[in-house]
Write a protein that binds this DNA or RNA. Structure first.
Lengths: 187, 187
DNA sequence: ACCTGAACACCGTTCAAGT
DNA sequence: ACCTGAACACCGTTCAAGT
């Protein structure tokens, strides 16, 4: 007699993402996930190998989410404005999903997802930089921008930046400086 | 009858730092720490409140270590060269203690140490930037550099950068761009 | 005064037994 | 076929009893 399926892999991943944001990575327990999807903890092992795989799936889903957001910026025609929009989209995403963001970009141990997938999520940014700088230093330029944005956001989320001065202004100042450095080919 | 003290708080923290680098944050178990310092796990609670405090102490010690390294760069007279040396010192530290570095700068949840302590560790960098830019945009400039360096190193450690091209060259290219942007006052 | 074994709660995971 | 309770290992933590 086939037993009815009470949940899905997608529901489990979604529950994992919600838990991670609401109670932190340590709050991602198999029991808590099971309770959210209406099942007992052992049943989860029919859909995911173990907690570690579930965490990786959560990160992968977060990367996909980010990729969609970044792709949505392709409508902006001017490459400089588009670059700004992409940086803002990245920061907005991080503010919405701080824990997910840090899991994607601030990996502590071994990478949770394919580094290429993470790099792919910011690919539109590489396109915009290419239009600005030409192909020779496009990769270097994209790395300059993503590294700065990632670092700024991480420090902002961690509180390291929270000392004196307008953080939004500091973001804008830095972004302007970097985009300008990319824009005018002085090196 | 007074019982002999078999370990110290410092030894426990040192054991914690070693464990964290060798087996990751999850490997920092009270049992593993106890074994390293030659004591049983319950005895650790005479020196540290709980595992969470121990982890915070590990991070704090790492910040102190980094502060010493950064302070050592103050011998370089030219501010531009000093800034380069400081960036390199930061990166070298991260390569030596990748897990500790990520714990300090890539906090996942609530800050483990005073954000001001982390900011203080890179204070010499602020001084060099001030010499370069003048006081008006010194803070913004220091944030620009630290954010970039932190982001670059984090992505490097996480593998996100590990795709095509010389990473050292990308680091040098980015550092040169940023320092130049700070050096020549064009904005 | 610090150290220890025993004990408890909690979590990840497995598995035999249900439907 | 999937779901479940029971069971086990492991870890953090407490505590009474040792010295």
């Amino acid at each position: 007699m086939p037993a009815p399926e009470k949940t899905t892999r997608e529901a489990i991943i979604a529950a994992g993402r919600a838990l991670v944001e609401q109670v932190g990575v340590d709050g991602l327990t198999m029991q808590a996930v099971a309770e959210r999807v209406g099942v007992r903890a052992p049943s989860l092992y029919k859909r995911v190998r173990d907690r570690d795989e579930l965490l990786s799936l959560v990160v992968a889903a977060t990367v996909e989410d980010l990729t969609l957001r970044m792709d949505a910026t392709s409508t902006v025609p001017d490459p400089r404005a588009r670059l700004m929009a992409q940086a803002h989209a990245l920061r907005a995403f991080a503010h919405e999903q701080p824990v997910g963001f840090s899991l994607v970009f601030a990996a502590h141990g071994a990478p949770r997802v394919e580094p290429s997938a993470v790099a792919g999520s910011v690919a539109p940014l590489l396109d915009a930089v290419t239009e600005l700088t030409g192909p020779e230093h496009a990769l270097d330029g994209a790395r300059l921008l993503t590294a700065w944005a990632n670092g700024f956001i991480t420090m902002e989320l961690g509180g390291t930046l929270r000392m004196g001065g307008d953080i939004d202004a500091a973001w804008r100042w830095g972004l302007d400086r970097i985009v300008s450095a990319l824009d005018r080919p002085s090196a």
